[in-house]
Design a protein around this nucleic acid. Structure first.
Lengths: 137, 137
DNA sequence: CTTGACCTTAGTGTTCACTCCAAGGTTTAT
DNA sequence: ATAAACCTTGGAGTGAACACTAAGGTCAAG
């Protein structure tokens, strides 16, 4: 199948597929005599792997690492794959914690603000951002 | 005071200060006869506002909006400021929810994996990423 | 035989928040 | 007098994940 059909089948853009190939994520397909890429079901499977890995939060670089391991399974251990997964999970957890701090601060700011149509002259949010001790730090 | 001293005082890089000026976040300071920027305490206050707004999760573009409102307080309402804050809070909440889905998926993958030094031939993580029904969707 | 859908490469643009660099001019200390 | 430390501008680079464009080649249908 050609790139357009594959793109439709996996719901990705042709640009994305060529990009994945260029980044070493999607193996290079054969070409027909006029240079068009010819894909097989193997590529569909690869792209599904990529999508699933992305869906659980791995970056393309990390997906590439996973694909490499998957390709040479016998040379890698379960431990290695699990470590990668746990490391990623911890990074995600850190980012969540940071965003939760943002969320709490924003909630507090909003809670203290009257939110009326009165001019913002003494708006508690602006005051908090201006003052040294407006926030909890 | 010159840019280096200001940078030290607010713990930011001189590059960042020039960048903020260029982005319209930090008001343009006076220049001495040789073109050096001359800052005052007003700029220190402005930078503290910027840092606090960043610390609660606002992007530089949003900080610029807040600074503008703060500069022309009488022309804006508390409502407007609160709306901005709430909208940002909701965006942060959405991102948190997404990351929590990542976290849950990664935890599940790791939990199902033996994690031993055995070859990854039948690693449950790789299998889950390969198989159509490996994940919950 | 021509239209339109498809394909090719190479290259640029997008967002964010800076950082780094080059190539000069200025100030301060010794 | 000179070296070190500071300042200036403009522009390029970072990473993620593509999107978009230009300028052309190819293929199937009417």
């Amino acid at each position: 199948m050609r790139i357009g059909e594959l793109a439709k089948k996996v719901s990705m853009s042709t640009d994305a597929l060529r990009y994945y190939e260029q980044q070493g994520l999607l193996s290079k397909p054969q070409r027909n005599q006029s240079g068009y890429r010819q894909y097989s079901d193997r590529h569909v499977a690869q792209l599904n792997f990529i999508r699933r890995a992305k869906d659980v939060g791995f970056s393309l670089e990390e997906v590439a690492e996973l694909l490499k391991i998957n390709f040479e399974k016998e040379q890698h251990s379960c431990h290695e794959v699990k470590e990668l997964t746990l490391r990623k999970r911890d990074l995600v957890a850190e980012r969540i914690a940071e965003l939760q701090r943002f969320h709490a601060s924003l909630s507090q700011l909003a809670k203290d603000c009257c939110g009326t149509s009165a001019p913002a002259e003494h708006c508690s949010i602006l005051t908090a951002l201006e003052d040294i001790d407006g926030l909890n730090h």
